[in-house]
């Protein structure tokens, strides 16, 4: 995707040339490109360090390839950058170890996170990966709120969790995928049991 066609996230275009703000270009793993203001990037410790280390000039930003974020898809990254633009310039909370942590979800964040749970989990994962402390806090708070007053069966549905049986089956499948011999050995063992033996040897 060209720079001209890249989706611009929550950017006040009129303000750009006046203050000569720097807008960095990022690319998701599905090749969606985003232009994000320098101030918004500061909400992400990971990205902020990255752009500082790169030391791009305004020309570099336009002429060099967009910075690839290979672990996050465009749909999720759009939400991340919308959040960063909305909260740019705000202080980043510091964990002082106090409990309970009181986290209020602002109206903008609540609307932004009015998404299906799968995407919400991706947003949390992205907030953690990009080290966006307050986005991680509000998104985790939203997920925590979902648990209130639910039964285990309801929680299983809400959080898309497997039952113990499904969990075990998934683990077995993962183990087998890692070691194809495991299934053979298990089958051999079952066969011997059926034949009345209790030893491999």
């Amino acid at each position: 995707m060209s720079v001209e066609n890249a989706p611009v996230v929550d950017v006040d275009e009129a303000a750009i040339p006046v203050e000569k703000k720097m807008y960095y270009r990022f690319e998701s793993n599905d090749k969606k490109e985003f232009r994000v203001s320098e101030l918004a990037i500061q909400q992400s410790e990971t990205l902020n360090r990255l752009v500082e280390a790169m030391g791009y000039t305004s020309e570099d930003v336009e002429n060099k390839p967009a910075i690839a974020i290979e672990n996050i898809d465009g749909k999720t990254l759009k939400l991340v950058f919308q959040w960063c633009e909305h909260h740019k310039g705000e202080a980043i909370p510091v964990d002082d170890g106090s409990v309970p942590k009181i986290v209020e979800i602002p109206e903008f964040d609540a609307k932004l996170m009015d998404i299906d749970n799968g995407l919400l989990f991706k947003l949390i994962w992205a907030a953690d990966y990009l080290n966006i402390v307050q986005l991680l806090n509000v998104s985790c708070k939203k997920v925590a709120n979902m648990a209130q007053g639910k039964t285990p069966a309801q929680l299983r549905r809400v959080y898309l969790l497997p039952s113990d049986e499904e969990d075990e089956a998934a683990k077995r499948a993962a183990q087998e995928a890692q070691d194809p011999r495991a299934r053979e050995v298990e089958e051999e063992f079952e066969e011997r049991k059926r034949q009345g033996g209790n030893s491999f040897f």
């Binding site: 409990v99 949390i124 994962w125 985790c140 648990a147 209130q148 639910k150 039964t151 497997p162």
Partner: peptide, 26 residues
């Protein structure tokens, strides 16, 4: 990501700290 279980440790702990105690037991 299709399940809460795929979450890494840091956000998982963050979520649990924001849950009320009864929800954690559930």
């Amino acid at each position: 990501m299709s399940s809460l279980l795929e979450m890494t440790d840091v956000p998982m702990r963050n979520i649990l700290e924001k849950c009320d105690f009864k929800s954690v037991l559930t």
